[in-house]
Amino acid sequence: MRMVSIASGSSGNCIYIGSDDTHILVDAGISNKRIMAGLNDLGLAGTDMAGILITHEHSDHIRGLGVISRKYHLPIYGTQKTLNEISSCSSLGNFDKGLLKPIDPDVDFMVGDLKIRPFKIDHDAADPVAYRVENGKKSVAVATDMGHYDEYIVENLKGLDAVLLESNHDVRMLETGPYPYHLKRRILGDRGHLSNENAGRLLNRILHDHLKKIFLGHLSRENNYPELAYETVRLEIDEGSCPYGASDFSISVASRDQMSDVVYL
């Protein structure tokens, strides 16, 4: 099993997850050209993909979906409300709506030999989910666009081998930055985005001996810096109540412009 971030940030998101036999994308929020370039770097093509998992309908998660759907006719998985929003999104152009495959939170489904569990998150979208993907005894997850976390989310993120977790903003940068008040309230609210501090606190709840890789993702361009996210999360781990230190784990920031290293599990 392997995992790589092709792009992650407030401007566009696309994550590859695959086994030897099955290859999927989580979100398609960048151009088809960039997605295919990332896949080519992995020795794959669009025709190798078995489907696309969509977390929610915001443009930074579906921007490339229309083109990739028309070119490769890939199944598109999402909750029914999310798919309804995608179906009515004029910016995607015309594509085969028969490709839309509704799924339900907390109900596992299979794509090839990958077992996928969607789980609910709180965000200002129609019906957003994060995804846990398993192959044999290996498991990874992509969890972004969460205004907060609770015991339900913690349980869905336990026992992972790798995770891409939102570390969207620095609270002080956001509060003193140029965003209008209503947008600041939205981002800081329970249906907004996870801060660097809260990402570190959530990690404290899910760290374990066999967690091989942590990607910090979905960083805000305006309200965060990669170095700040990295150091803040590490500090939260080091000062937290879990028995681990940040240096016990491989932690890196997923870039909006470049592919991450490939994690092999």
Score class of each variant (00 low, 15 high):
Arg2Asp: 02
Met3Phe: 11
Gly9Pro: 04
Asp21Ile: 09
Asp21Trp: 09
Leu25Gln: 01
Gly29Leu: 03
Arg34Met: 15
Ala45Gln: 07
Asp48Tyr: 09
Asp48Gly: 11
Leu53Met: 10
Thr55Ala: 10
His58Ala: 08
His61Arg: 08
His61Phe: 09
Gly66Met: 10
Ser69Thr: 09
Tyr72Glu: 03
Pro75Arg: 11
Gln80Thr: 12
Leu83Arg: 05
Ile86Gln: 03
Cys89Lys: 10
Leu92Glu: 02
Asn94Lys: 15
Leu100Ala: 05
Asp108Met: 14
Ile116Arg: 04
Lys120Trp: 02
Lys120Phe: 06
Asp124Val: 08
Ala125Gln: 00
Val129Asp: 00
Val133Trp: 01
Glu134Lys: 15
Asn135Ile: 10
Lys137Ala: 15
Val140Asn: 02
Val140Thr: 11
Glu155Asp: 14
Glu155Ile: 06
Glu155Met: 07
Leu157Cys: 08
Gly159Val: 01
Glu166Gly: 14
Asn168Thr: 13
Asp170Gln: 12
Asp170Tyr: 06
Val171Leu: 14
Tyr179Ser: 13
Arg185Ile: 12
Arg185Leu: 13
Arg191Cys: 09
Leu194Tyr: 00
Ser195His: 03
Ala199Leu: 09
Ala199Asn: 05
Leu202Asp: 00
Asn204Cys: 12
Ile206Asp: 00
Lys213His: 08
Leu216Arg: 03
Gly217Ser: 05
Glu222Phe: 12
Glu227Cys: 11
Leu228Gln: 04
Thr232Glu: 00
Ile237Glu: 00
Asp238Cys: 12
Asp238Val: 10
Ser241Asp: 06
Cys242Asp: 04
Pro243Gln: 12
Pro243Trp: 00
Pro243Lys: 15
Asp257Glu: 09
